[in-house]
Design a protein around this nucleic acid. Structure first.
Lengths: 249, 249
DNA sequence: CGATGTTTTGACTCGGTTCAAATAAGGTGG
DNA sequence: CCACCTTATTTGAACCGAGTCAAAACATCG
């Protein structure tokens, strides 16, 4: 695999996180400095279990590369519960609890940053401090995403599921400032999409072709071009997480 | 509808909650008294929105009757995200956040109890107080249930989905002491089961018949008899929420 | 250049949906 | 207690969305 997903420099990485959290609360410059100052980097190759389902993992931030939250059935079937994008947390849960709720696996080469100092600061400060609020809103959005995942697989057609998932990923990338001009990095294989949408690989392939044929998206070699974001959202009843949760720019 | 689901007396209701939380942490008698002392009751008929998706609701405890967390697509399709059983929380989320994440609807006549005093006590006390821990574990289990829901609909057959869902509900009822001798209240219609499992009503019906034919369960007029809990769990790879989260009796 | 993983295509099958109608169960009012 | 209404369950038959199997075409990388 190329190092296409390892691009962020020392400064650009934390910048992603700040950009995301600023959507949720007006960070103080102290907050931003705190995030900029994180420096315990770590690189992992694809396939690595960043979080094990059974044990508790230390909190980190994903700075570059993609990961997925995953569950396996004993017979080998795999279900992806959600994707983890740059700027998202890894084991950032604030519940004081010995068990992490599911495994997280790197899908590409991945860079993470230790976030213990961040969580420490939040734990000490008041519950309504901007940083704390921002993290809570982020956690709420994660939960919303999990609910969207349920609705997709419970009540949507293959076509809608994929359009909806892509709409979600697009919005999340937009929020952290990844991609420009409706062009985004998209390192997912069709197998990963299948495991995330509850479809077979073959059917994902055919459905993608249909969406492409209808000129809603373009998808080649790790790059996604969303030709018609509005139509893409319309065909699958995609609605950005409800008003009030965060204010888009 | 009968008043089959309105049975708990003034004392038996809170008892359910205590029984549940005791699985998660050794409550102090002060904790238990606090719960017993809650007394702002409320009764609602089936169909009532206990929580609206858009606004924030005050925290309550469900004491009698069943509810469901629900999402609607604009064309009317409905998805049930999970069921809420006696002893469970209603809007018990501890995130200080203006948005509730999805609607909750009463499926039967329902009794709830105001839990503001409970949340207040927890907010004041330390984070590792037993009561606080218990609520956190409860929240973690809720999240696990949501993940199970994803796996069911993403990667399981109709037969497995229903067996798995019933296994989950059985375990949760066991935990609060509802039902005895493998016989449990079961107020769900096949339409509700369909909306929860992502299947059609007709197919739920046929699948239930198959499970009955195989003598795993018996299901009549609001009562569930689990004839073979182990086999029921085995056929769908059901595993109780991972060890450490709570210790079954 | 071969080796490996990913995407694509075709043909066939099947699990689950849909539509429509019959039957059963509960709830209500006389 | 019966007649009636409504809602829930059950059945049958036709259909279709998505899965499976197998092989070909592409990419990417060492």
């Amino acid at each position: 695999m190329t190092d296409r997903y390892r691009t962020p420099t020392r400064r650009a990485g934390p910048e992603l996180v700040i950009r995301k959290l600023r959507h949720f609360a007006p960070l103080t410059s102290a907050d931003e400095n705190l995030i900029q100052a994180l420096d315990d980097w770590r690189h992992d190759p694809p396939g690595v279990e960043l979080v094990r389902a059974t044990s508790q993992a230390p909190p980190r931030l994903l700075i570059a590369g993609w990961a997925a939250r995953v569950r396996w059935l004993t017979d080998g079937r795999r279900q992806i519960l959600g994707f983890v994008l740059p700027g998202d947390g890894v084991a950032l849960c604030r519940r004081p609890h010995p068990m992490s709720l599911c495994a997280m696996v790197a899908l590409t080469p991945v860079q993470t940053l230790d976030a213990a100092a961040l969580m420490q600061a939040v734990a000490i400060g008041p519950n309504d401090a901007p940083l704390s609020v921002a993290l809570h809103v982020g956690a709420a959005l994660d939960e919303q995403a999990l609910m969207d995942q349920v609705v997709r697989m419970g009540r949507m057609t293959a076509y809608e599921r994929i359009a909806h998932l892509i709409s979600e990923l697009r919005l999340r990338m937009l929020m952290v400032g990844l991609g420009a001009g409706e062009q985004y990095p998209f390192p997912l294989t069709q197998e990963m999409l299948a495991d995330a949408t509850g479809l077979s690989i073959v059917h994902v392939n055919r459905t993608l072709q249909q969406i492409r044929r209808e000129r809603l998206i373009d998808l080649h070699t790790g790059r996604l071009l969303v030709r018609d974001p509005q139509m893409l959202a319309a065909v699958c009843d995609f609605k950005p997480p409800s008003a009030g949760a965060w204010k888009p720019k």
